[in-house]
Design a protein around this nucleic acid. Structure first.
Ligand SMILES: [Mn+2]
Ligand SMILES: [Mn+2]
Ligand SMILES: [Zn+2]
Ligand SMILES: [Zn+2]
Lengths: 151, 151
DNA sequence: CGGTAAACGCAACCTTGTTGCATTTGGAGG
DNA sequence: CCTCCAAATGCAACAAGGTTGCGTTTACCG
């Protein structure tokens, strides 16, 4: 069963980066690959650890910061702050859809649940304010945690 | 109309601190006063600026951090991280009123602005979910930061 | 192939927050 | 009012996360 790798599948990250209109560099491809492979948003430190591959040339700390910023700037990655105040990055593809609906965050287990409802239109802003993002988050206890605690 | 100051009104912060079971110090009273007077959660840096009163002895940077931690520990203040990853503090109890309106969070300066609009009614939740809090947060650039950057 | 703007590596720097330790002080108890 | 000591403060040093400046390298356009 001599199978050849699906050629369309390889270099996904490189293609995305090219399509975003910025230079395709080894570093950017590696970082975007790592973000795609991750199942949770990663901090700079966590990314540095995952990129520590003896086969690849070591990447400078500052360069990693700049690569992350560039991926965010061209819309390929998302940046958010965690509860400790540290920035975490994720590949943009999956999250884009989450802008269109409301979320429920369980304060017990930390779980995030996507609700069917879409966020209401934002109110008018004061002069000079520029809107980038709308978050309609409900906080409370999810069904699982409610039943476990409410014995 | 010689009116005397209502004696019950003065030293609110000192009474709260005493009631919380920790020592009443000049620093703690000043910080809690500042938090009560604030209309938004304040960062350590913003508090330092507001406490810079030539009439009062200067407070050490580390002491301010420790005072804030102590107020949080005894339940008189709340600590939360802003969009830049910086901690912001508010007087406990102040956030009750903030549940009734929408907030704008500046991703540049981390500032939190109270908008006049009230949050929309929450959508129906799945069975078993218990709602505690509704957060309708707008993110973007505030007027001050917009003008400073958009030369 | 060049030529050039963008990306990179490195050193220095900044901000936010913490730790260790010696000194001062609030306030409980005499 | 005085004594005493745990708690609070001041100061120096440290640490993590992030940024800036600048000279060198590289992606990629023509
Ligand atoms: Mn979602
Ligand atoms: Mn508010
Ligand atoms: Zn839960
Ligand atoms: Zn701002």
């Amino acid at each position: 069963m001599a199978r050849d790798l699906a050629p369309a599948q390889i270099d996904v990250s490189a293609d995305l980066i090219r399509a975003a209109g910025v230079k395709v560099t080894r570093g950017r491809v590696r970082v975007l690959d790592a973000l795609h492979a991750a199942r949770q948003p990663l901090s700079h430190a966590e990314l540095e650890a995952r990129l520590d591959d003896p086969a690849e040339p070591a990447m400078d700390r500052v360069t990693l910061y700049r690569i992350l910023d560039s991926l965010v700037a061209c819309g390929l990655a998302l940046k958010a702050v965690d509860t400790r105040g540290v920035f975490r990055f994720s590949a943009a593809g999956a999250q884009r859809q989450h802008a269109k609906h409301v979320h429920f965050r369980c304060t017990d287990c930390g779980g995030v649940f996507c609700l069917k409802a879409e966020p209401p239109p934002p109110p008018r802003l004061p002069r000079g304010f520029r809107l980038n993002e709308v978050a309609f988050d409900l906080r409370g206890t999810c069904a699982g945690c409610s039943s476990r605690e409410g014995v």
